[in-house]
Write a protein that binds this DNA or RNA. Structure first.
Lengths: 342, 342
DNA sequence: TTACAAAATGGGAATGTTCCCGCAAAATGG
DNA sequence: CCATTTTGCGGGAACATTCCCATTTTGTAA
């Protein structure tokens, strides 16, 4: 079904030289006469030669490829991280293969297998919200393939991680709400399986404590990040005897959905209820009222993850370092917490 | 640096059988005693064995992997197509590797080389807006590797294509604007390099002709899809002696940006100027006024592209068929053309 | 010119797997 | 119970390339 693949042997035969020489010319590293090299390269181009990475990686035990596994593609967050990561990887001479897990554990496991089977030299991963078992990641460690987590990290694995300061971001968000005079701040929290959720929750709690605001468990709603459920929870919050005057959402999609629900109900934002998100998705500046949120250095996250990965790849397994880089977030104040001056 | 890889030979040795038998057990196709097979599979799991796809594809000349190349990740369009494509590919037993070209020709060429080097069994592609030379795609044809275009297709190559009916969509958009009483409809067109742009332009032109509206070249602005430039063009249009009362934008990001610019200027949408986009990105329903646009069956596009690819892969090169599937768009009418009844 | 080093090339093993072929063992039929 | 078929398994070639070692060619200094 497939036509004959052009190999270095074909080139060698065409030029009357050996395959070793062709190989040397093509990899261009050592002891090769410039004219020979030129002739080989020209012939290769002429014959539509394409090197077979499988054969190369079979013998070199290296693929010059790094894998990226993300939970989803729908928010602008992960695509932007990928752009940063891809740029950094390309600059270092690595190819990138990407796969997305659709927020499901089974797909994530399958994706790790694809990466393993493709013999990637390393991977960077952000987990799905479902992932509770980490065996499929631990295989990489056992095999000596570096793995770096970003954003949604696996706490129990001693590997490099790139995160933003979720605690600090949440803390800033809540203090900002308090500074605008809000007293009852609800939190639409993420699932406990993600350490990010827990950290944001802790930032929320500590900001309240520091400002002597009593914590009301009723106002804290952990949910599974399924956008459709936001409506239920927001309605529930608003029907409390003592409803909140602000909502801090665990991420931007949730906050956006919250705004839509509240607008439909007819409450004024931010006068009746203020809203803060997390991540500064593109849409946050577009929606009305525009969303106050914490901007994350997304491309930097991707770059940093790759940098840590490359560092790890250049070390011996025995010399691996499980550094954790924490990047800062910036509070972007918009009209969902401070009424427009217009 | 890398630890020893577990091979079928290790398993064979551990069980005191031959590598051929292990291979048979693992691929599970023919003439193998059930107990032997079980023992092999168990031992493989116990030893953390991972098959080496490179060795397999080297000999089988097949990788069970299809490649996806898209121009960008930032709009929700391509990520959604990928979700559909990935689902279809997985269902057929194929892995997927994704790469994004950042809308630059050079990256696209590099991406095709990664795909070739990885010996993918086929690729689906949507081109960058810069791509004018198609040699890097023609290589696939010459090598007998099926290629399917979607959305942004290469007209001069006789290969399968999946598109939406751009002409029809544009036609519907313009007729809708006319039906709301608009008379001077401008078109923020895409670059001529993309046939999609040309088709949308033709739909626009024919809808005007059919309704006896004179065509004013002044109102047609082809641009390169760089969002930052929208502001310049919109301002230019509004400063014309005889400014437009509606703008049909070539895609949603452009339309969204147009809305933002016009809102800043202070004109009323749709009363002073109506706006229509193309694709129905998520953000289109969120922005105020919400955007009238043409929804595309995004996931279906991905599925269809993979279906055509698989069909092609199951044929002999001599039997390839260059079918073109055209999917319909739906006009979604929102407040950017019809004032809210509230 | 000779001797020797350096540069350029060739040959063959190795990478991990599948596939083909051959052989032994088990199963089947008369 | 023997002949024949089927089933299960082992051995070795093949895939495309790199790498090591050996060999040839070229260059340089005495």
């Amino acid at each position: 079904m497939k036509s004959h693949q052009i190999t270095i042997i074909d080139i060698a035969r065409a030029l009357g030289i050996s395959k070793s020489t062709v190989s040397r010319a093509l990899t261009g590293n050592v002891n090769i006469k410039p004219e020979t090299m030129e002739a080989v390269i020209e012939m290769a181009k002429k014959m539509d030669y394409q090197r077979n990475l499988h054969a190369i990686s079979l013998i070199t035990r290296k693929t010059n490829t790094v894998g990226i596994i993300v939970p989803e593609f729908l928010s602008s967050y992960f695509p932007k991280v990928i752009i940063g990561a891809q740029a950094a990887a390309t600059a270092a001479g690595y190819h990138v293969i990407i796969s997305q897990s659709n927020e499901t554990y089974a797909t994530e496991v399958a994706n790790t297998q694809v990466m393993l089977a493709n013999q990637v030299d390393g991977i960077i991963v952000s987990m799905t919200k479902e992932t509770l078992n980490y065996d499929h990641f631990k295989i990489f460690q056992r095999k000596g393939i570096p793995i770096v987590f970003f954003n949604r990290v696996c706490e129990e694995m001693a590997v490099p991680k790139v995160m933003v300061d979720d605690y600090d971001g949440a803390f800033k968000a809540v203090e900002h709400l308090l500074s605008t005079g809000k007293k009852r701040i609800a939190h639409l929290a993420g699932p406990n399986s993600l350490s990010m959720s827990v950290k944001r929750l802790n930032g929320y709690l500590d900001a309240l404590k520091k400002n002597n605001i009593p914590i009301d468990e009723e106002l804290i709603i952990p949910y599974d990040l399924t956008i459709g459920k936001v409506k239920i929870y927001v309605n529930h919050l608003l029907q409390l005897k003592n409803p909140p005057d602000a909502i801090f959402a665990v991420n931007d999609p949730t906050a956006i959905e919250t705004i839509l629900v509240i607008k439909k109900i007819g409450l004024r934002i931010p006068q009746d209820i203020a809203i803060v998100g997390f991540s500064n998705d593109y849409i946050s500046s577009i929606i009305e009222p525009s969303l106050t949120t914490l901007s994350q250095p997304v491309e930097k996250i991707g770059e940093t993850a790759i940098a840590l990965l490359l560092d790890q790849m250049n070390r011996n397994v025995s010399d691996w370092k499980a550094v954790t880089k924490v990047l800062k977030t910036d509070l972007v104040i918009r009209n969902s917490t401070v009424a427009s001056s217009l």
